[in-house]
Amino acid sequence: MKLDMAIEELHRSENHLVTVLMSMSDKHKADHEVFYVTRDMAKWSREHVAELARIGRDFGLDLDPEASEDPGLLAGMKQRTSDLLGRRSTPGLLLLADLRHLYREAAGTSLDWEILAQSAQGAKEQELLDVAEKCHPESLRQARWANAHLKVASPQVIAS
């Protein structure tokens, strides 16, 4: 049984996703929808980290229920930089790169949930399956948003 390893790996990738989303939010503070939606979506990943830490105890794991995040100082600096650069068009390319990165991270995490859900079924671990069924759709929504926003943002960035 390697369920503990799968949980630990997901805990790591959800943790990372919190960082990716919050860092992206701060970097694009001048892009209001990106700023707020990534923050709202980061809440999902924070909840997933807590859920995984809780269920991890049943599998002998001692995982931190709190996501590790950027210190506030760094976040503030990124936000100020975004406001300063927000009158130029070059950050558009950076936004596309970040959306692409987020899409890959979220899609990877979503696959990890797929693995966990399948394994939980195989091992007949109902509670673990419940956690996966609750969290998996939200990581899919994160990936879908990245994809959708890329579609919206790219024509103006590339064809201008």
Partner: peptide, 11 residues
């Protein structure tokens, strides 16, 4: 609101 953002960045 997005149009304004594009005006702000100059495109």
């Amino acid at each position: 609101m997005q149009q304004l953002r594009y005006m702000e960045e100059g495109t």
